[in-house]
Design a protein around this nucleic acid. Structure first.
Lengths: 142, 142
DNA sequence: ATTACAATTGAGAATAATTCTCATTTTCAT
DNA sequence: ATGAAAATGAGAATTATTCTCAATTGTAAT
């Protein structure tokens, strides 16, 4: 029943190390989009010996097997989040940098159909929108 | 009538330097998604003195005023392209890395409406899709 | 045309994110 | 339990990008 990320890891031939359990646990409990450094900081609280290289290595592995997605949120480094059943999109305010999550089944469906019509097999989609959030639209004069 | 990128630059208070003319000309004539290094290489053919810093500085400026868009095409560095009237999306094959452009007015419209419904003002959208291209679907066994 | 000032540039140093190296440790199938 | 393959930690190395600063240039006003 409980087809969790750990069994997925094993299915793909990855070994189940304490570091991987820890990193996945953090990613799963986090509601935020973590960057490598933040994940490293959080992980160190529970395993002070963990290495930043391990964080990067495993983020790459998780990405490869679809457990996490990397997003370019307009900063100079990537952000990661656990992939959930519900695909969603990211709106980034170009002024204040806030990230707002959006959902639309219709857009997902259309994208899937667009790919099908071109004979492309779609693994993941990532819709990034830039603009002004409501607050920044209001205080545009600053 | 001819509202080109040069006049846009001036409208935003940027000076019209030979380097900027050159970079924009290259971006406009290129059908590809150039990264900073390729743009630099192309620019040097016409202006051997041009500096890589100038390329980065101006890509940032062009981006800021909406003349170019930066895409994260799954590599470890950004790719840039001149913004045209027609928004389009990018499919990247996770196996061979080929980039295929897709268009869908419907998706653009839905995205715009989604933002409106959340009171977000949308400046740009960027839809990145990952999967397998037709060729790589065929030769999956390699 | 000349001037003056702010913006821009070139060159290379500096920084920041990410990857690599390699000796050591650990997982897991046997 | 054992051994081979995979993973880790630590720090060095690499790569993309930004910064610094002196010299140059575009432009608005004369």
């Amino acid at each position: 029943m409980k087809n969790n990320s750990l069994s997925t890891l094993q299915e793909f031939g990855y070994k189940l190390t304490p570091q991987r359990r820890l990193l996945l646990a953090i990613l799963e409990s986090s509601q935020q989009h973590l960057d490598a450094e933040s994940l490293f900081t959080l992980a160190k609280q529970q395993d002070p010996k963990i290495s930043l290289a391990t964080v990067y290595r495993n983020l790459a592995a998780f990405k490869k097997i679809g457990l996490v997605q990397e997003h370019d949120l307009g900063q100079d480094h990537g952000h990661f989040e656990r992939v959930t059943a519900k695909p969603h999109f990211h709106f980034t305010c170009s002024r204040c940098g806030i990230v707002i999550e959006l959902r639309s089944k219709k857009i997902v469906k259309l994208t899937r159909e667009l790919c099908e019509s071109e004979n492309l097999s779609m693994d993941s989609m990532n819709l990034l929108i830039h603009g002004l959030c409501p607050a920044c639209q209001a205080g545009k004069s600053d």
